[in-house]
Design a binder for these strands. Structure first.
Lengths: 364, 364
DNA sequence: TTGTACGCGTTATCAA
DNA sequence: TTGATAACGCGTACAA
């Protein structure tokens, strides 16, 4: 019923192109077929890698396609193949923290594997519900979500058979595939390193009470200190900002009557605030008399001058793993839920003493 | 020829759902129609805002749709409507500078208008050619590009009738719609402000020789100083990093035999390096004896402690403008190329003296 | 207001 | 290797 009822009839390129222009149509594979003097299916095959086409046909088709600026329509393709080659990446607070770095890595890795990124951002993680409704519409082949999904939401992914990888969030749900850096373990590790160096009295500037990440880091540190038989640390809460770090140290010193041996901060911004108050306001020698450590080392280029002792999440490895897992799930129908947990990288700055005092003295 | 030859025949929901499951099909509007006992077009109308449907039909359809977890297929829709509601956002170096903030703003604004973001990232701006080929495939309704497009590439957008807004890049091509912060003007403005305060001898740590942005800022400052009849500034080049800022000041001082009245740095990282060397190595009183200023104020939360005098690009306003223009172009067919240039915001830090010496003395 | 019939542009199947 | 034909899932004239 289509116009080109007589396909193997070659048509003049320029003329045909003008006709398309006139009719305000898109250039389709039919148009290419007419100009090349082949069938529409032949054109389709030429754009499918590994299809069986003769050299001469291929050449004629490609020439016609180039002349018409023809590009296959991804929407039509995805309709029949049931694959869009798009992956949804869902996240909030893009402006904060190391998410930009993570997004860049995810995007690069997905592109390398021939997938496109359909980006969904939200103001707050709580808005995820609205976002998911959009995700379903767009026929993505999979999703990488940086948000705390509810059990129900995870189940909806399963029901729709949509491969899902949760990034950097530790869900209770055991059936979900995720890649993360164990924040509890991070807190534990940092406490242990500092304890090994001989620190006994700890202060913790934990961050927001409602933050899951902050809570896990705090609990990891507290539990480890208890296991080691050390005194319970003084814990204060607040925001995740510079000012909270500054006030946090003041509060701890006020509560304790003196400064502790070491301060663990919920993130690096807190640590910087703490550091400045310690050095310039309270005149505490850091790291001589007190150590300060944080989490979430930013890119090397940022925060120059400071040389914080901190932990860094291996974003590159995590992004690689997330994309790997997602692609595997997309290729094989039957998938196994897996949780890959990465260890943090220790960033050996100059704001914490990490060797026992005797050794430090010996070395000096 | 389709199965539901007899649509107004109500079908059991659970049974039908099981059948779909069994056949491994997607849920379509036909399925909803069968369960609701209406025609497929009725279902379609129910999902189109402002279509004429009776209350009762709407209710039956929505109930069936909810029961089947039906969501309209965006690919099929875009095939017929010729609109995908997707906008391509193309950029490189996501991890650097203020691009994350810009992307977040763009994404928010586009989402607010019911558009989805299809994200294309590249390692270098030069890779834009490969990326564009992908953009054409995905039938986006428009594109926001943060890269220096060639004339040819701009023309291809026109040829394909694809609305384009160039973000933060000053193209020679006058026919392209773009939104940007004039870097030449930024340099000029900063030089003028400092000159007004009485500074006469300037040093410029310009940044990479190959960077267009760096060159424009430098030229703007140099030209303005010349217009004001001030001595030619000492200009040094290097990278865009902290170390280059530090070395830059050393070089300027070595070349001049003393330190100048004011230093203009190609970006904030350079300024920080310069600042630290000035204060801690060369023992120069900043801003008492020398002023230091930069460009590209980062988010308030970053680089705490430093309190740099600098200029900030109004990213929020720029993103808003870009999306506004793009949406306008998408809605009306005949579009007019327009270039919207925003003025930078002055960030009044503490590293530069901005009032003439007499006033400063009087105030003291 | 509702249903019929068609087409959007492609890939997949099958026979030639 | 090639061409005819049938889907894919939806929106939309048009007639009822």
């Amino acid at each position: 019923m289509r116009k080109p009822k007589i396909p193997p009839q070659e048509v003049n390129l320029a003329e045909h192109k003008a006709a398309i222009q006139r009719e305000e149509r898109r250039v389709t594979s039919y148009d290419v077929a007419m100009v090349a003097g082949v069938s529409q299916s032949a054109v389709s095959r030429c754009f499918k890698p590994g299809a069986s086409v003769s050299k001469s046909t291929y050449a004629r088709v490609m020439k016609a396609a180039a002349g018409l600026d023809y590009i296959p329509n991804a929407a039509a393709r995805s309709l029949i193949t049931r694959r869009s080659n798009m992956v949804a990446v869902v996240l909030s607070q893009l402006a904060n923290q190391h998410l930009p770095a993570a997004l860049a890595e995810l995007s690069q890795q997905l592109t390398r594997r021939g997938k496109r990124v359909l980006l969904f951002t939200m103001q707050q993680e709580a808005d995820i519900g609205h976002v998911l409704a959009d995700v379903w519409q767009y026929q993505v082949d999979g999703a990488i979500v940086v948000a705390a999904l509810s059990d129900e939401q995870v189940q909806e992914f399963e029901r729709r058979r949509l491969p899902l990888v949760v990034f950097n969030r530790n869900l209770r749900n055991r059936t979900v595939t995720s890649v993360l850096c164990d924040q509890y373990e991070c807190g534990s590790l940092l406490a242990a390193r500092l304890a090994t160096a001989g620190h006994r009295h700890f202060g913790i500037i934990a961050g927001p009470a409602e933050s899951v990440v902050a809570a896990e880091r705090r609990d990891g540190a507290c539990d480890r200190l208890r296991e080691l038989g050390l005194p319970a640390p003084v814990v204060v809460t607040g925001g995740f900002d510079y000012a909270s770090g500054a006030q946090g140290l003041r509060d701890i010193v006020a509560r304790l009557g003196r400064h502790p041996d070491a301060i663990i901060c919920g993130n690096d911004l807190l640590a910087l605030g703490c550091l400045d108050v310690a050095r310039h306001e309270l005149r505490i020698d850091v790291p001589g008399r007190m150590s300060v450590a944080g989490f979430d080392a930013p890119e090397p280029s940022t925060w120059p001058g400071h040389d914080l002792t901190t932990l860094r999440q291996p974003i590159h490895a995590m992004a690689l793993a997330a994309v790997d897992m997602l692609v595997t799930m997309m290729d094989s129908t039957g998938q196994l839920a897996e949780k890959r947990t990465f260890a943090p990288q220790f960033v050996d700055g100059t704001t914490a003493r990490l060797v026992p005092l005797e050794e430090a003295t010996l070395a000096a």
